[in-house]
Structures are given as C-alpha cells and as structure tokens.
Computed example of a mutant assay.
Amino acid sequence: MTPSPHSNKILSIHQPNYIPWLGYFYKIIHSDVFVFLDSVQYPRGQSFSARNKVKTPNGPTWLTIPISVPEGQKGKASFLEVDFATDKWRKKHLRTLHMSYAKAPFYEEVREMIEPIISNATSFVELNISLIEKICEYLEIETKRIRLSNILDEYGEKTQLIIDICEAVNVDTYLSGTGGGKEYNNEDMLNQHGIKLIYSDFKHPEYEQLWGDFESNMSIIDLLMNHGKNSRKILLDNK
C-alpha cells in the first residue's frame, strides 16, 4: 500500500528505551503516529535501551537494568526476547529516585505514577513501553502510539523499515532524530516512495533542577520531578 499524497501525517519511530530523555518525547509530540520498534534487534553493548541518567546530590548517575538474552542469541535477539537478568534493580532504582528527588516539588505525584510499573512490570518491553505510555498520558500527548509487532510481521532494514512502516500506517512524512538515526535515512529512497524526510528541531531547554548547576540530557524523570505537568510547556517552548 502506498501512502496517500494527501495524508499529511507525520510518523516517528524509536526503540522502547528506559525512561528516555526529553528529545524522545518531543519527537512523539510532533508526530501524528509514533511506532515503538519492539520487535527489532536489541542493540549490542551499552545503549539507552536499558539505562538512562538522573541527577543525584553527587551529580548525574546511570540507572541501569541488568538484562539477559536467550542463549546463543546475543546480537540477534529482539527487544521482545530480552528479559530481566535479576529483579534487584527495581528497589535500587526506586531508592536512587527517592534519594535524588524526595525534595523535588512533584516527587510524590510522579512517584505514584511510575513506582507501580517499575515494581511490577513482568517483562523488559512492557516496563519500557508502559512507562513511556504513562508519561505520555501525564503530559496529555495525544499522538497515536503503536507497536511494530502489532502492525508488521515482516519488514526491511534501515530505510526500508521506515518505508514499510509508513506504508503500513499510511503516512507520507517521516520525522527523524538528528543523532544515530541519520545513518538509516536514504532520502532519495524515501522520496521515491512518496515519503518526505524531516528532522527534529529539538533544542534542549534549561529548567530549574535540584543539586547545583544545570545538567542536560537527563531522563525525562528529572524534568517531571521538578516541574510536573508544566513539563509539557517546557518541552515545547525550547526555541
């Protein structure tokens, strides 16, 4: 199915990362459809898939989820096949969040939102997607959100993956991040399929934080703890 030239809808996609940074949600807000790449290959090595940074009294620190990959599937397993290696991280992460943000204005409000998910999620993908979904609801982000595993059983790689998703959800504009995603984008190939390529214009805002000088590129949890529902306005007013 070829996207209608008049659909005028914007697609963005991303792996279901753990409590992502602000730019992740900025991209969702500026899309009509966002697709969680839940069935693509889980990356080798360290990535933001299973970790992110929060600001503590001693500076930024990583919250990392120990994950396990099926025997013999390292570098081949999808996000859906990855699981928790242990459950000890749950209490550790919640304790770090408490120590870091108990004095933040919206700590209790945000804690009540995310703690049940962190404590009870039964799989790695469910944890990450559920947290992102809950944060989107909290920030009143109305973008349609879909899992790749629910729309396509087969798809290509890199630019072909983008084309396959655009055609599956009938959009004609692809919104890309400006980081590693650029290496996947073959603009000529997209144009041949009637898909316009645009890039996120996200500029990281500065906002009031706890613990001294401003630190950028924290998990969105840092913004939420400090600014609550006003985080949406801060995300959008970053020009």
Rank of each mutant, 00 (worst) to 15 (best):
L148W: 06
V171D: 06
E142V: 07
S31N: 07
N8T: 03
D237S: 13
E183D: 11
S231A: 14
L236A: 07
F202S: 03
P16Y: 03
N8L: 11
W89H: 00
D213W: 00
Q41S: 13
I67Q: 02
F106I: 10
K55I: 10
P205L: 05
S7N: 01
F84Q: 08
L97C: 12
I114F: 08
S31C: 09
G179F: 08
E108N: 10
H193P: 05
R145W: 09
I19F: 05
H227F: 07
R232T: 01
K91D: 12
Y107I: 13
Y138R: 09
P43V: 03
N217A: 15
K27E: 04
G177N: 02
R51V: 02
N120T: 14
R51N: 02
A85E: 14
F36I: 13
D188E: 15
S119D: 04
I13T: 15
I67E: 06
A104K: 06
G179N: 12
T61I: 13
P3L: 14
R147N: 14
T64P: 01
I135Q: 08
P105Y: 00
Q192W: 04
K203D: 06
S7L: 00
V54W: 03
P70K: 05
N230K: 15
N170S: 14
S219F: 02
V40E: 13
F36Q: 09
L11T: 02
Y18G: 10
T86W: 00
N186E: 14
R90Y: 07
K88T: 05
I28E: 08
E71C: 02
E108K: 09
P3N: 11
E137Q: 13
R145Y: 09
I165Y: 10
V69Q: 05
E154F: 12
I220Y: 04
N185E: 08
R90T: 11
N185L: 15
